[in-house]
């Protein structure tokens, strides 16, 4: 019942779409994380207007379906005279969507760093931004990696929605192949498997990265239990 020939004939085409998916997600993350950082810091700003705008952006993009955000970007940008190709619109929409979520992740990470850390940095003469860069943000890194990874996986999956504005990424390619072959089962299983493989790869890589950071700061101990043993010995 399976039409194996389709796997061979259309794999190059699907891989091309897959490659565009990867490129779009990478660009969206590259834009989305700085945007998220900006929004997270903006939300903490003492200027009411800045914190209001940041909060509104975050809440609006978190509380609406991505597909309608994509459509709005697609129609609104030319409405105000900005004509971009669908790929660029897609990257911008995905970055804005991701940025709203990244912002909340980064904010939670900053909140998790003890207050004394910021105070000690400010007391030694660092500016707010220097304290963020040198003391606070590096400490949030190991806290935010797991949720940032999850959000990255979400972005990979949400990028499928860019097919609706004719971005020739993986899902769009799948729809085209299905239109040519009328073999939806083979096509969509392959599309799904490619997404799945990408997600699993990213998840595994990030887990390794997280472990390497933890090891660096606690090089002699592999687990928390051994480090607490050391601490209690030191105070006895």
């Amino acid at each position: 019942m399976l039409e194996y020939q389709i796997f061979f004939d259309y794999t190059p085409m699907l891989l091309l779409g897959f490659w565009l998916t990867i490129k779009i997600v990478v660009c969206a993350i590259a834009l989305g994380i700085p945007l998220g950082l900006f929004l997270a810091l903006g939300r903490r700003s003492k200027f009411l207007i800045v914190s209001f705008l940041s909060t509104s952006f975050i809440e609006v993009f978190r509380n609406t379906p991505f597909i309608i955000q994509v459509f709005l970007f697609y129609y609104v940008l030319p409405f105000y005279g900005l004509k971009l190709s669908a790929e660029y619109v897609g990257v911008l929409a995905l970055a804005a969507f991701g940025g709203a979520y990244f912002a909340e992740i980064i904010r939670a990470g900053i909140d998790a760093v003890p207050k004394g850390q910021l105070e000690s940095a400010r007391a030694i003469g660092m500016t707010d931004w220097q304290a963020m860069r040198n003391v606070i943000l590096p400490q949030t890194l190991s806290i935010v990696i797991p949720p940032l990874t999850n959000q990255t996986l979400t972005l990979i999956k949400e990028s499928a929605i860019l097919s609706t504005i004719t971005v020739h990424e993986l899902t769009m390619t799948g729809l085209m192949v299905q239109g040519e072959t009328f073999r939806p089962f083979e096509v969509f299983i392959m599309v799904a498997l490619l997404y799945w493989a990408l997600n699993e790869t990213v998840a595994t890589l990030m887990r390794k990265f997280e472990q390497s950071i933890k090891k660096k700061r606690n090089p002699t101990s592999d687990s928390n239990s051994s480090s607490t043993v050391e601490k209690s010995e030191g105070t006895k």
Binding site: A121, A123, I124, G125, T127, P138, Q139, R217
Partner: peptide, 25 residues
């Protein structure tokens, strides 16, 4: 003034009850 203040703070070393050393360095 806040720039100047950072300079003053560097000249006034502060030590806290809870140490507040930076664990990532």
């Amino acid at each position: 003034q806040s720039q100047l203040l950072n300079g003053f703070r560097a000249r006034m070393g502060m030590v806290f009850q809870q140490f507040n050393v930076w664990p990532h360095l």
